[in-house]
Structure formats: structure tokens, C-alpha cells
Amino acid sequence: MSTKNGKTGNVYLIPSTLGDMEPLEVLPISIKQTIEQLDYYIVENEKTARHFIKKISPRKSQPSLKLSVLNKFTEAQEIPTFLNPCFEGFDVGILSEAGCPGIADPGAAVVKIAHEKNIQVIPLVGPSSILLALMASGMNGQNFAFNGYLPIDNTER
């Protein structure tokens, strides 16, 4: 495939807020700058992703956004196609529903494929509920294991 300017695009891992806080109060300005440069996104939920992007960058053209949905209903064979814009020279952002993409998040599947295809993956700084819980626990952070979140359903929990 030919690429724009002969370069393969990058994949940016874009964190989002945890809870109902204003994104620019807790996320670094680099998140805003990255969102303003990207038109291609891989998201868990289109509606909430558009809302988050609009909060970060109110003047960003919503019709120009090209969103691929990655959730439990996404077919496995569809996931590699989400990276096609990279081979056309465009950068792609993976936007987590809450917290950091790839950390207990379906974005990990895309990151794995990006590495296999020699696409540069650039993680951006943001909140991770797992790390925030570890930080606040008082436990030794030198050695811990995350075995998944508790089930949402009370009977399963």
C-alpha cells in the first residue's frame, strides 16, 4: 500500500476521564493537541466518544471524524482493518471508554496487531483505575497482579 508522504501513520492511545470530571482539569494538554490532529479513531462507543472529543476540542468538525467501533460485538477479522488508515499515512487514535486504552480494555487487541504490522504505538498519559487503586491502597507496588474487575452483576460478584 502506498502511504501519504511515504510514512505509515501512528497509533495513539488516548486516555479518557474516570467519572464525571472535566477532561481538561485532569488530562494533560497533549491529549487535546493529539485529538485536534486526528480524524480516525477506534472507540468502544461512538456516542460517548464523540461527546468526549467535543468536550476536549469544541471546534473540531464532528462530520470529519471516522470512527471504528471496537467492543464485545466486533468480529475478530474486522479488527485489523481498523488500522488501514495508518497504511495510507494517517494517524489513528484508540479512545478508551474510561481510563487508559489497552488496560483491561479491548484496545489491547488493536495494539497487538499494530505491533505485528510494525506500526508505532504511542501511549499518552492518563488515568488508569487499576493504577489509581494500587496507588491509594498502601500496598507494595513492586509486585502485584490484576486478575480482572469484579463482575457487574451482584449474583456473579
Rank of each mutant, 00 (worst) to 15 (best):
D105Y: 02
I103E: 06
V125A: 15
V92S: 06
K117L: 15
G107M: 05
G89K: 06
Q120F: 01
K112D: 09
G102E: 00
I79P: 05
P123A: 13
G89L: 08
E116Q: 15
G93R: 04
F87R: 02
A98M: 11
V110L: 09
I94S: 10
F82Q: 00
K112W: 00
G102S: 12
I113E: 00
G93V: 07
G99S: 13
Q120H: 12
Q120E: 14
H115W: 11
D105F: 03
G89W: 03
V110W: 03
V121C: 07
S96G: 13
I94N: 05
C100S: 15
L95H: 07
I122V: 15
P106N: 12
D91I: 09
T81D: 13
V110K: 04
C100R: 12
L83W: 05
G107S: 10
C86F: 06
V92C: 05
A104K: 04
N118A: 12
A108F: 02
S96M: 09
C100G: 02
I103G: 00
K112L: 04
L83T: 10
E88G: 03
P101V: 11
I94V: 15
K117N: 14
K117C: 04
F82S: 10
A114F: 11
D105R: 01
G99E: 13
H115D: 00
I79L: 07
V111L: 04
N84A: 10
F90S: 08
P106D: 11
C86H: 05
P85I: 06
L83A: 14
Q120A: 14
I79N: 03
I94H: 01
N118P: 00
T81S: 14
P101F: 06
A109G: 00
P106L: 13
P123N: 12
L124K: 12
A104F: 08
V121T: 11
N118D: 15
A104L: 07
P101N: 13
A109Y: 07
V121S: 08
A108S: 14
A104I: 07
I94R: 02
G93H: 02
G99K: 14
G99N: 12
L124Y: 13
I79K: 15
L124Q: 13
A108V: 11
T81C: 09
V125Y: 02
A98D: 09
I113P: 05
D105E: 13
V92M: 01
V111S: 04
G89M: 06
A109N: 08
K117E: 14
I94Y: 00
A109M: 06
G99W: 10
C100P: 00
P101A: 07
D105G: 10
F87D: 07
S96A: 15
I119Y: 14
I122D: 07
D91K: 01
G89A: 10
L95Q: 06
G93D: 08
G99L: 11
N118V: 02
I79C: 02
E88M: 10
V121E: 09
V92H: 09
G102L: 01
A114L: 08
A109F: 03
P80Y: 13
A114I: 05
G107H: 00
P101G: 09
A104M: 05
F87K: 04
P101M: 03
C86M: 04
I119L: 13
A114D: 12
S96P: 14
L124D: 14
P106Y: 08
G99F: 12
E116H: 13
V92R: 08
V111D: 01
A114M: 10
F90M: 07
G99Y: 12
Q120Y: 01
